[in-house]
Simulated scan of single mutants.
Amino acid sequence: MPSTVKMWKSALLTALIIIGIGAQKHPAHAQAHETLTVAGGCFWCVEADFESVKGVSEVVSGFTGGNLKNPTYDQVTGGDTGHYEAVQIHYDPSQVSRSQLFHMFFRSIDPTDAGGQFCDRGSSYRSAIFVSDPAAKAEAQKAKANAQKALGQEVVTPILPKQTFYKVDEYHQDYYKSSDRLAFSSVGLGVKKSVAYKRYRKGCGRDARVKSLWGDEAPFAK
């Protein structure tokens, strides 16, 4: 009996050691990811752009920057809430850094435009970066200065304190890749959301303007 107990204790100790080593090599998924909040005009477009980046696990569309709690899409686009159409970018910092994301963000928008982005005008379509700590603010400011130097024009995109982020309803999430059909839209009848999105993006002139500003530095413009 004593030898059996010793065998069980030895096996248990070995198992605990293996589990401990495994935990060190494979930290919890949640601990490996961070979140970045930016506004770059239409959140469908920003979501589509950054979900293509290696190291980004998800981009969530929503609103931030205003005072109205739990705003609706219609309330925000109406222009009286102070909110921006924004996204939260969930990423793995071991694969893509915050500085790299800031760099790409400035080159995916028109940071010289204070009145909106591309064909979308008004306060809800303004660009901005939202930060929660001094390190993020410093990185954002450096990226902004680099963007201004590269363009040779004033960059007006503000760097603001992070505020509550309100996720928009599911209708607007992953719009760019949805196969749901729209009974009516400004770009056609009975078309898939993904098709309507492509027509909207082209018609709005987003990629054409970004390409004209940034040339080969534009990471997403086609």
Rank of each mutant, 00 (worst) to 15 (best):
K144H: 12
M7C: 04
V156W: 10
F165L: 03
Q173E: 07
I109M: 10
Q173K: 02
V210W: 10
S127Q: 07
H172C: 05
T164C: 00
G55P: 07
R199P: 03
E154V: 13
F106N: 00
G190P: 01
G122C: 06
A208N: 09
G82R: 06
G62Y: 09
S186N: 13
S57K: 11
I17R: 01
V87S: 04
K211R: 14
T157I: 07
V156K: 11
T37W: 02
E217S: 15
D113A: 10
D174C: 08
D133H: 12
E47C: 02
E34M: 11
F50D: 01
V59F: 05
E170M: 10
V210N: 10
P27A: 06
K222M: 09
L189Q: 12
Y171T: 13
V38D: 01
K222R: 14
T4S: 13
A147V: 04
S3V: 13
A150S: 12
P111Y: 06
G82M: 04
K177W: 08
I159P: 08
A196R: 13
Y73V: 01
G66D: 08
T4R: 14
H33T: 13
G115M: 05
H103Q: 12
K162D: 11
S108T: 08
G152I: 07
D207R: 11
G78Q: 07
W44F: 08
A143H: 03
K202W: 00
T157V: 11
P161V: 04
F50V: 00
S186R: 14
T77W: 01
V59P: 05
V96D: 00
H83F: 01
G41S: 01
K177T: 09
D174T: 03
R98W: 01
Y84C: 03
G122E: 06
G22W: 13
L213C: 07
R126H: 12
E85Q: 14
T112L: 05
S52Y: 00
A32C: 12
F220I: 06
R121D: 06
M1N: 12
V191F: 02
